[in-house]
């Protein structure tokens, strides 16, 4: 692996780790922050990104302090994988008007989990479209809300019109083991894609 690093200085605390990220996406209220929180080793953190009146990301700070801006919150968690690798999980903002952020979020992401709620599957269509178009590998986690009707995962796949090679699994975002299993499914899928590409 190659890393871009600023000049390390002699006697400085070494920066031995590098970071990777996975996105937890899906419609509004689908359980993204809950899933981040259930597997993260820290309580989910939140950062604010600036949004101009027009709803676009602020990328030039000139005069920002005197303009009307709003912010959009990003929730994220962290898993220390090894002394060399730290994994960040970013819950993507659910509302469509925040999608301008998705490009920065998607850049360099290993992959994504799209959470779906069977009561309103349509709210996850947009995330699926986005990742398909950007060629960000993803899997679908069907979040089992208590009062939602249970459907076989095949029925959900059909309703979402998923490609046959995109894994879909049932999950409970509140449950740590279930969320771990979802992430493991994503990683297995990523490894399979790599193997297929090299074959």
């Amino acid at each position: 692996m190659a890393f871009a690093t600023s000049d390390p200085q002699v006697g400085s605390p070494a920066l031995e780790q590098s970071a990777v990220k996975i996105l937890i996406a899906g419609g509004f209220g689908v359980g993204k922050t809950t899933m981040v929180g259930s597997v993260s080793e820290i309580a989910p953190l939140r950062t604010e990104e600036l949004l101009t009146d027009a709803g676009v990301a602020v990328d030039d700070l000139t005069g920002v302090a005197t303009k009307t801006t709003t912010t959009v919150a990003l929730d994220f968690g962290k898993i220390t994988i090894s002394p060399q690798i730290v994994l960040y999980l970013f819950g993507t903002p659910g509302q469509e008007r925040f999608w301008f952020m998705w490009d920065e979020l998607a850049a360099g992401a290993l992959g994504a989990v799209v959470l779906a709620d069977t009561r309103r599957l349509d709210s996850s269509f947009a995330a699926i479209d986005f990742f398909e178009h950007r060629q960000v590998p993803f899997i679908v986690g069907v979040n089992c809300f208590d009062d939602a009707p249970r459907y076989p995962v095949e029925a959900v796949r059909d309703a979402l019109d998923l490609d046959p090679d995109v894994p879909a699994v049932l999950c409970d975002a509140r449950d740590r083991e279930s969320s771990k299993a979802v992430l493991a499914t994503l990683l297995e899928h990523l490894i399979d894609l790599g193997t297929a590409a090299r074959a």
Binding site: F3, P8, V20, K21, T80, L183, I191
Partner: peptide, 29 residues
């Protein structure tokens, strides 16, 4: 301060060893 960028990718796909390490890390949580 010093900084370290995320792993660079030579191709579209992440390093398989990196993916396996992340998978092992998740399973061992």
């Amino acid at each position: 301060m010093i900084f370290r960028s995320p792993p660079a990718r030579t191709t579209q796909r992440p390093d398989p060893k990196l993916l396996q390490a992340v998978l092992d890390g998740i399973r061992n949580l």
